[in-house]
Amino acid sequence: MADYDNSRYTYAQVLAGTGYYMKDDKLRYSAGVKTMQTKLNTAGYDSGTPDGKFGGGTDTAVKSFQRAKSLTVDGKAGKATLTELDKTASGGGNASAEAKNLKKKFGSIISSFASKNSIGEDVLGGFILTESSGSGFVDGALKIRFENHIFLKAVPSASTTFKVEDKVHYYKKNGKWYKTHTGKQTSEYEAFNLAKNISENYAYYSISMGLPQIMGFNHKVTGYDTPKAMFTGFSKSEDKQMEGFCTFIVNYSSGSLLKACQSRDFTKMGQIYNGDGSTYGPKLKANAADYAKA
């Protein structure tokens, strides 16, 4: 039984690093918990009617928020959780720097696609905000990530050059094995170029590309005839990458994602795109609210 008196700390104290809030089976009132509940609701994480009592619904909302923000998922809302919540909450305040930058750079593209496809501009902007990697190029070259397992599934004979062990990807060069994903584009391109020498089409097929990091095997729904054509198009500009991402959202899953976007069903959007509507849906909703303020 959780016997924790949340009324001991104000919201400001917890935000500053003193104490935390957590589930209290006695459901004692706390003004700070009520503030947190309001912020959770406006950020898209339903904790029920804000009543200042940290029960099961609030516990679920806190854990969902922590999971979506890659925080420790323990139901304890301390400084890290409240700090992230204050940045995310859609009720009042200013838009995030990421949302402002996205609208400044690609607002016209997002607006055009949203209008053309009867999607709320905030919904489409929030989706892109959730999925964009922040940069489509590194040192002038298209940002990529080569996925060994995708290539090996398409070309099993390439096992002499590529392997995956304990989820770690390796490629073989000059008789020595190197890690593919090192955080640097050098290793990604070395693996990619080795793959091109084995099968050019499947090499392009097996990389994620640009700002949205869309896989080459999704070239059709992104608006390109081949994975290589997608690579060439994305290499032209980040605008082309964003156009491709918008097209991808519209066409993905035979149009079912588009319908979910049109109806503003964030849970369904999360289910279709990420397979987890309960976690991913609130994140999409919060980012849509963030984009709306930008």
Results as ranks from 00 to 15, higher is better:
Pro227Tyr: 09
His169Glu: 14
Lys172Ala: 02
Tyr252Phe: 15
Lys236Cys: 02
Lys163Phe: 04
Glu188Cys: 01
Ala158Asn: 01
Gln213Ser: 08
Phe245Gly: 00
Ser133Asp: 09
Gly136Trp: 09
Ile214Phe: 10
Pro227His: 13
Leu124Phe: 11
Ile249Trp: 11
Glu188Ser: 00
Gly223Glu: 08
Leu129Thr: 10
Met215Lys: 11
Gln185Asn: 08
Thr180Trp: 08
Pro156Thr: 06
Pro156Cys: 09
Asp139Pro: 01
Met215Thr: 05
Gly126Pro: 03
Asn251Leu: 09
Phe231Thr: 06
Phe146Tyr: 04
Gly210Thr: 00
Leu142Met: 03
Asp122Met: 09
Ser159Ala: 15
Gly255Asn: 09
Lys176Pro: 01
Met242Leu: 15
Gly140Gln: 07
Lys220Thr: 14
Met215Pro: 03
Leu152Lys: 13
Val123His: 06
Ser256Asp: 15
Phe192Arg: 02
Ile144Tyr: 01
Gly216Arg: 06
Phe146Glu: 01
Ser157Phe: 12
Lys163Leu: 07
Phe248Met: 05
Gly134Tyr: 13
Ile214Ser: 06
Ser256Met: 07
Asp139Cys: 03
Phe151Lys: 07
Ala191Thr: 02
Ile198Gly: 04
Gly134Ile: 10
Ser235Trp: 05
Tyr170Ala: 01
Val164Cys: 08
Tyr189Arg: 13
Ser159Phe: 13
Gly223Thr: 09
His181Gln: 06
Met209Trp: 06
Phe231Trp: 08
Ile128Ser: 03
Asp166Val: 06
Tyr202Ile: 08
Leu211Thr: 11
Thr130Phe: 10
Ile128Pro: 01
Ile144Thr: 12
Glu238Ser: 09
Ser235Ile: 03
Ser135Leu: 06
His169Pro: 02
Asn193Val: 00
Gly126Leu: 11
Phe234Asp: 00
Ser199Leu: 02
Pro156Ala: 08
Lys167Ala: 13
Thr226Lys: 05
Thr186Lys: 13
Val123Lys: 06
Gly140Ala: 07
Lys179Asp: 05
Ser237Phe: 07
Tyr178Gly: 02
Asn148Gln: 12
Lys240Pro: 00
Asn193Gly: 03
Glu131His: 11
Val221Lys: 09
His219Glu: 11
Glu243Ala: 09
Ile198Val: 13
Asp225Gln: 14
Lys184Asn: 10
Pro212Trp: 14
Gly136Ala: 12
Ser159Lys: 15
Lys220Ile: 14
Gly125Leu: 13
Gly175Phe: 08
Lys173Cys: 00
Cys246Gly: 05
Lys236Ile: 12
Thr232Gly: 01
Ala191Ser: 11
Asn148Gly: 09
Asn218Phe: 15
Tyr170Trp: 14
Asn251Tyr: 00
Phe217Thr: 03
Glu190Thr: 06
His181Asn: 12
Tyr189Pro: 01
Ser135Thr: 14
Asp239Lys: 06
Phe245Gln: 05
Val138Ala: 02
Arg145Val: 08
Thr232Ile: 12
Gly125Met: 13
Lys172Glu: 04
Val250Glu: 07
Gln241Gly: 05
Ser157Glu: 15
Lys220Val: 12
Gly255Glu: 10
Tyr205His: 12
Gly140Lys: 12
Phe231His: 12
Gly125Gln: 12
Glu147Met: 10
Phe162Lys: 03
Ser199Asn: 15
Thr222Pro: 01
Phe217Arg: 11
Lys184Asp: 07
